[in-house]
């Protein structure tokens, strides 16, 4: 049984005029949720589809547990995927849609019902797919992905169409699955959601890797030290107390933004100068800022 490590090396996809993916390399570790981020057209979906043997790479390799998807002895029990275009025949019920997968994968029919139960679709099991809401379709996609109890999950924009409750359900599910030691690779453009959900991120733009690593490391890499936000009734005294080493700006609310000394140093300087502080906070850039900074100028429509 292969382990769940995903390895992509030198992966390239050249369409007629567009190089959708360009020499992309990264690894995805088991036991963690990895966010796969990039602007529209960055090549996220193409990469995931190459990983799953749906799109043929021009060059490079993409393996799961050391094997190409097509070479996996039992793909349904190894990898579960929810892709954007996953759909069912409009006239077919959810249960029958999943039973078709069971038959082809050699799983017992009861797995269809168990998977529907898991995503909370049991009561709609016999309803035809055309009557499903976007959120229900997304849940059915997850049921299909989980049908073989796979150790690797690959999801392309799974939050699309989910309501806030559904998004939370998805987050808890994916984090629980990663905690069980499974590999979870999830693409999304909901950066605030990814900041809560992901342990690692892979950021790409224009088909190329921009950065990869744990979320905290990627966030910390931006702009060196974080900034400190201070609210005080006596800004002039505090600025004088901080001295030459600090860069201080004032925002519209009258708060000071200090770059250079951290919150501890600012607090101590205020204490020594006898300046009253009403608020003292370390502000680190969020994923959205980092993402926009990193992909600036690389997200042109190609």
């Amino acid at each position: 049984m292969p382990d769940g490590r995903i390895a992509v090396a030198g992966l390239t996809k050249q369409y007629k005029t567009v190089r959708a993916v360009d020499g992309l390399s990264f690894e995805v570790e088991p036991g963690r949720v990895t966010g796969f981020l990039g602007p529209n057209g960055a090549g996220k979906t193409t990469t995931l589809r190459m990983l799953l043997n749906l799109v043929r790479p021009t060059a490079g390799t993409a393996t799961i547990g050391g094997l190409r998807y097509a070479d996996l002895p039992d793909p349904v029990r190894t990898v579960g995927a929810v892709l954007e275009a996953s759909a069912a025949h409009k006239g077919r019920s959810a249960r029958n849609h999943l039973r078709v997968i069971c038959r082809a994968a050699g799983l017992p029919d009861r797995r269809a019902d168990e998977a529907l139960d898991m995503v909370g679709l049991s009561t709609a099991a016999n309803r035809k797919f055309k009557g499903y809401s976007l959120g229900m379709k997304q849940r059915l996609g997850i049921a299909a992905a989980m049908i073989g109890d796979p150790r690797v999950l690959i999801l392309d924009e799974p939050a699309n169409g989910l309501d806030p409750e559904g998004i939370r359900w998805m987050r808890q599910l994916l984090q629980a699955l990663a905690a069980e030691g499974r590999t979870v690779l999830v693409s999304s453009h909901l950066l605030s959601e990814m900041e809560i959900l992901a342990d690692d991120v892979i950021i790409l733009a224009a088909g190329r890797l921009i950065t990869q690593g744990p979320v905290d490391t990627v966030l910390g890499s931006m702009g060196g030290a974080g900034r400190t936000r201070v609210r005080t009734p006596d800004p002039a005294a505090l600025t004088a107390a901080l001295g030459e080493g600090a860069k201080v700006t004032t925002d519209v609310d009258g708060d000071l933004w200090v770059t250079g000394p951290d919150a501890v140093a600012v607090g101590e300087a205020a204490h020594r100068a006898g300046v009253v502080l009403h608020q003292l906070t370390t502000e680190r850039p969020d994923l959205e800022e980092v993402f926009l900074e990193l992909t600036k100028g690389k997200a042109d429509i190609r």
């Binding site: 025949h89 078709v100 109890d149």
Partner: peptide
Amino acid sequence: MTAPTTSRRSPLGLVSAEVLKIRTT
């Protein structure tokens, strides 16, 4: 979640899946 019993992937299962696809429309 309970782990599924060992899968038995076979050409016949594949035909059965395709027949089920036709039968469920």
